[in-house]
Every structure is written in structure tokens, then in C-alpha cells.
Design a protein around this nucleic acid. Structure first.
Length: 302
RNA sequence: GGUGCCUUAGCUCAGUUGGUAGAGCAAUGGACUGAAAAUCCAUGUGUCCCUAGUUCGAUUCUUGGAGGCACCA
């Protein structure tokens, strides 16, 4: 059976570099699992690999969408699995690299088949919520889907909104779509986690990376997309803070501080998510030879 | 040199009519099923600048000192 090597870890830890070295060693290609590197209009703030690396190793799902496109994790699942099937005909193992937790899990475990919400329904439900508030939303969910109501976080309006949307368009309970069963995949998965034991060093790297993004022209890039700031794809660290600066609600230095802080928070949140996954084998960024060894061993066993 | 104000959590600051203290931010932990770099939840942290008084008891009042800021010389 073919093998998918998943390289994951917190933002800024050096996944791109490491995965390119691994890809070279195995003479293979890289599938990105990064929910923001899809978008071609935002490259500096999302830290896409540089041109040289992209030319050296084929990368997929990088800069292949527009911020104006509607995209979600389910579309990614379908497209990525199709592509993987094709790529496995010529290479093995294949690399999946990224830090977007839900996107990684969707490739490894799958996601339930839930109807996609159309823009009209989304707007309708959203507007209704804006007008009526969270208590009304809770009440409505309780009527439509009491089972989901009993398990959902009742402070989290996004979760509840989505459930309500799905109930409305499908005429079924949202909870009836949730199976909680992992999908079988036609490949083995090896999960390699990259982390820095000393979180202070990770945070320093993050802070420095933000400074170098600014030097590379992040402010100008953000200004280009500022007119479309309400797009979901731009609800992104590195851009939303600069939008506040453009609005005049904070200084540039304050915006940069906020980008650094929010990136650190994101890294922490990623680590929280990854911690519960016992399949991950963890390495420090300098351990590329050990990582390759580990992959070799596991592939021979399987 | 004089006068006034300030010194409390990692940071910015509340507050205690005298009974050893609390917000925001940061930090940390957690949740997560088509918006996920999103969204949501939880948790601390203290020589209350030092000193000597008054007091049963002082971070709070008083004396002296240190540091900071402002104004006047």
C-alpha cells in the first residue's frame, strides 16, 4: 500500500524547509494542507515557500485559488484525494505538509457528508442572527435539532449557525449527518510532528518572521486586498491587524505587535490540537536525518 | 534647590472610609465535522518601593528615605 507522510507542526517551526529536504530524499511531491496558502493574492503573510523551492519540488494546493472563491475543507478533501490517487501512480511516499489542523485531519480521517450551504441561506441565517441575538439562536437550534443542542458549545454562535443552516437547507437534523466514523483511506499514514521543545525559541522565530514579512512588503500586499476585507479568506492573521491600521484604529507598530501576538496564539492552538493525536512522532527541526530514518523504518514494516 | 503628583501581577492601571487585593492585555490549559490562521471556553499570577511610627491589625494614615514625572527657580 502507498504511504502518505504527513509533516505537521506549529506555524513558524520550519515545516516548509524540512519537507523540501524530505521530498528531495524520496524524490516526491508535496501537497500543502494550509488553509491560507491556497490564495494567490496573499503570499507574504501566509509564508508560502519561495520560488526556488517551488520550482525544485512540485507543490500542490499553493496559490491555486482566489480570495474571492468560496472554498472549504470538504472541497479540499475531494480535490486532494483525487490528486493523490493520480500522484501515487508515479511517486511513493507522498508528502502532506501544513499546519491547518482540520484540513490535515480531514485528509487522514475524512469528514462527514454534510450538505454545502449556499450563499443565500448563509446570508439569511446570518442576518437573522445579527438581528435576534444568541439566545434566539439557541432557541431555534433547540427546536430544529435538540440532540445537537445538547452537545454543542452554546456560546459558540458559528457552530450553532452552521447547524441551523444545514437543518434549513436539508430539512433534516444537523446531528443526523454526523457519524463520528473515520473513513478508510487507500494509503498508510505516517505522521511526523515538528516542534521546538523550548517554546521561547519558537516565539522568537515567529516574532522575527513577522518582522521579515513586513520588510518583504506585507503592508503593501495587505493594502491591495484591503477593499475585500470582509471576505472570509482575509479573516487571517497578518492581514486583519493591518486592516485596523489602515482604518486608523491603531499604529503600524501596534498592528505588528498584534500580528506577532496572534501568530503566537495560533501556534499554541495548533499544539493543543496536535497533542491529542497519539499517532504523531515528534522531532526537533534539526533532526531531518532521523525523520527520514523513521519514515524508512515505518514504510518497511508496512 | 522648591512645590505638586506617582510607585500595586510580566505590562497598563483600578482599589482597599485601616481587616494582606482585581480588571484588561500578556502567559498557560482546553473544545473543535463545509467560515478552522475561523469561532468559543477555562485558569493563575503579588515583600501592594523601602524605613520607622500610630494601631489589636498598615498596602491604605503619619515621619524619613529611594526612584520616576511635571511645574517653578
Amino acid at each position: 500500500m502507498n504511504t502518505l507522510v504527513v509533516v505537521l507542526g506549529p506555524t513558524g517551526v520550519g515545516k516548509s524547509d524540512i519537507s523540501i529536504q524530505i521530498a528531495k530524499h524520496f524524490q516526491t511531491e508535496i501537497i500543502s494542507a494550509d488553509s491560507r496558502q491556497f490564495f494567490k493574492e496573499i503570499s507574504i503573510g501566509t509564508a508560502v515557500p519561495d520560488k526556488k523551492d517551488l520550482e525544485e519540488i512540485p507543490h500542490h494546493f499553493i496559490q491555486n485559488k482566489s480570495i474571492h472563491d468560496y472554498y472549504n475543507v470538504s472541497s479540499f478533501e475531494i480535490e486532494a484525494l483525487d490528486l493523490m490517487e493520480a500522484l501515487f501512480k508515479k511517486v511513493n511516499p507522498l508528502l502532506l505538509v501544513g499546519g491547518s489542523m482540520l484540513y490535515l485531519d480531514t485528509i487522514c480521517f475524512g469528514i462527514d457528508d454534510i450538505p454545502t450551504v449556499d450563499a443565500k441561506t448563509r446570508k439569511l441565517v446570518n442576518d437573522w442572527y445579527e438581528e435576534n441575538g444568541i439566545d434566539a439562536l439557541k432557541q431555534r437550534l433547540l427546536e430544529l435539532d435538540p440532540e445537537y443542542y445538547s452537545i454543542v458549545d452554546l456560546n459558540n454562535h458559528k457552530r450553532m449557525l452552521h447547524a441551523v443552516e444545514v437543518c434549513l437547507i436539508s430539512g433534516r437534523k444537523y446531528s443526523s449527518f454526523r457519524t463520528n466514523v473515520a473513513k478508510q483511506r487507500p494509503f498508510n499514514v505516517i505522521k511526523i510532528g515538528i516542534n521546538l521543545e523550548d517554546r521561547k525559541i519558537l516565539y522568537e522565530r515567529i516574532n522575527q518572521r513577522v518582522v521579515s514579512m513586513i520588510k518583504s512588503g506585507l503592508v503593501e500586499e495587505a493594502r491591495e486586498v484591503y477593499p475585500y476585507r470582509n471576505l472570509n479568506s482575509l479573516n487571517t492573521v497578518g492581514y486583519k491587524e493591518l486592516f485596523s491600521y489602515f482604518d486608523g484604529t491603531c499604529s503600524l507598530d501596534e498592528a505588528i505587535d498584534m500580528i506577532q501576538r496572534n501568530t503566537r496564539k495560533y501556534a499554541r492552538k495548533q499544539l493543543t490540537w496536535f497533542r491529542r493525536d497519539s499517532q504523531i512522532v515528534w522531532f526537533e527541526p534539526h533532526q531531518v536525518p532521523e525523520i527520514i530514518q523513521c519514515i524508512d523504518n515505518k514504510m518497511n514494516v508496512k
